[in-house]
Design a protein around this nucleic acid. Structure first.
Lengths: 184, 184
DNA sequence: AGCAGATGAGACGTTGATGTCTCATTCTAT
DNA sequence: ATAGAATGAGACATCAACGTCTCATCTGCT
């Protein structure tokens, strides 16, 4: 049952995104299973971490697909991306915190592909005159991901209401913190 | 010699901000000393991590002081803060990644004080009509710190030139990613 | 040169998480 | 109801990092 595996991974994210060094006991308890069963599903800790990473990247890639970021106006595409990615913000928070994953070539490649897609979105937006050209597409892409992770942490720790996630992310990232005098 | 301690902590940050689970061997090698000497300076791993955390918070607090964030126009104060904090972005990146530190009450208290100062800055800016009121001061504060950490990671990994750090941070955070038609 | 202190290299025991095993219990399908 | 499979609980060995120790070497000072 793939659903079973994914539900365990889901629970693992909840623990690991906060404390990447959490013991397997803790993860198993969070998933509602015993440590023995956890080992039956995943050969070991390394495999579990890797699976969580690939799940996060699969979800992120699915969000890019759902948002159809390659189509239409760049700003509208980014707003669609925000809505699509915020539900998986916790997974992105895990990915952001687990730089160690970049040792795995498979995960690294998968990440590169998705990151390139987001960078292309910003580049396209800059060519369309929608996004600012003073900021590099690479930095926009990285900063966007940082803020998505920030949403994930804030929601998990109860500092931000889940309903406010998409709005807070889109408004801050697109419009910045400054009040615009011309748009009352 | 406090300078010696700090130089070791400095080196430790370089390693720990990327990989929080790095072995003491690795940290000692990065600092150019042996593991034995590392143990002579810091009683153990826990003490080392705690010292790195307090160093980061001291530097962050010093940046808030240097920028005089309690004085004058909120936007100008934030720009001063950006300039003051970017040189220590790597330390902030460590603080952001090491949520585990929040177990220590001393560090937790110190963090609360600084976070409250930043939140007060945003609240003041909102009252002055400088910052947008649709975004909560708490989220602005958290997002700002996330982006500072992002700067630290990007610079450390060579994805962003150190000279571009302050500009990229200030422009994105204050003005957002959207191009403003009215300010060519 | 000679001495005191500091450092590096390495050995050693301890500790805690991990991986594997067994066995009793529970769930499920027929 | 019963056989088979799956799960939980716990014991056990392994292993890697940690903390401590000793000793040789190096540095700095007189």
């Amino acid at each position: 049952m793939a659903t079973d595996r994914d539900s365990v991974l889901e629970a693992a994210v909840g623990v690991l995104s906060r404390r990447p060094t959490a013991h397997l006991d803790e993860i198993a308890r969070a998933a509602g299973i015993s440590r023995a069963t956890l080992h039956r599903i995943f050969p070991g800790r390394e495999a579990l971490i890797r699976e969580v990473g690939t799940l996060g990247l699969r979800r992120f890639a699915a969000a890019l697909d759902t948002a159809r970021i390659e189509e239409g106006d760049a700003q509208a595409a980014l707003r669609r991306l925000v809505d699509a990615v915020v539900p998986d913000a916790a997974l992105c928070a895990f990915l952001a915190g687990e730089n160690q994953l970049y040792d795995d070539p498979g995960i690294n490649d998968l990440w590169e592909v998705q990151d390139a897609r987001v960078r292309a979105l910003f580049l396209r937006g800059q060519q369309q005159g929608v996004f600012r050209i003073e900021l590099s597409a690479g930095w926009l892409s990285e900063a966007f991901f940082d803020l998505v992770a920030g949403i994930g942490w804030a929601v998990q720790d109860g500092r931000l209401a889940p309903r406010d996630g998409a709005f807070s992310l889109a408004e801050l990232f697109l419009g910045g913190a400054l009040r615009r005098p011309d748009t009352p």
